[in-house]
Design a binder for these strands. Structure first.
Length: 177
DNA sequence: GGTATGATTGACT
DNA sequence: GTCAATCATACCA
């Protein structure tokens, strides 16, 4: 799933026509203490064990939604967290949903991203290759920076955060350039 | 049934 | 830099 995480950087992701270019992702896999799938299937993470190419959405801190792309590693649940994107389409709707004007603040963080795109728990388990989603692969020349993942309490040393080098749209703890 | 915790964010010192 | 908000989920009894 680290490969998927890298491939997603630079891809264009839209929900109902609203979205942009993915600039930051994180990989969560099997044998990964920080992954929701680590302790086996539960009600929340069931989607992670479902078909690859689905969207895994969960509620975080009782406040935010976080969106992941499901992928499998040897049949075990794995996913890629979408952390940030560069807004390119539907800026107006994003600004209304976020209550902000500043473009770099619209989607620079997993909770912000889902709010701007209108992703909620109702999207959990849906397939990404169907409406309202659109996922356009990145071009061949994507300059990626790898670094430690953000906000986790276990396995914090694994460099499974990937971001677009130099992008101002990545989330707060800026990756080392 | 009860409690601890978190893949975050925004406000405040 | 520090800290509270806020609640679904997971885990334990």
């Amino acid at each position: 799933m680290r490969e998927v995480a890298r491939d997603l950087v630079g891809a264009t992701f839209l929900v109902d026509g609203v979205g942009g270019v993915i600039v930051e992702t994180e990989a969560y896999g099997p044998d990964d203490p920080a992954s929701h799938s680590f302790r086996g299937p539960t009600r929340r993470n069931a989607t992670m064990f479902g078909p690859p190419g689905g969207l895994y959405v969960y509620h975080s801190y009782g406040i935010h939604w976080c969106a992941n792309v499901v992928c499998h590693e040897e049949g075990v649940g794995a996913a890629v967290l979408l952390r940030a994107l560069e807004p390119t389409s539907g800026l107006r709707r994003m600004r209304v949903r976020r209550g902000l004007d500043d473009a770099p603040l619209l989607c620079s963080g997993p909770g912000r991203l889902t709010e701007a795109l209108g992703i909620t728990g109702e999207h959990d388990g849906l397939r990404l290759d169907r409406s309202p989603f659109e996922l356009v692969p990145a071009g061949p020349h994507v300059d990626i920076v790898a670094g430690p993942r953000v906000g986790i309490t276990r396995a914090g040393d694994l460099p499974w955060r990937y971001s677009l080098r130099g992008s101002i749209f990545v989330s707060r703890p800026r990756p080392r350039v």
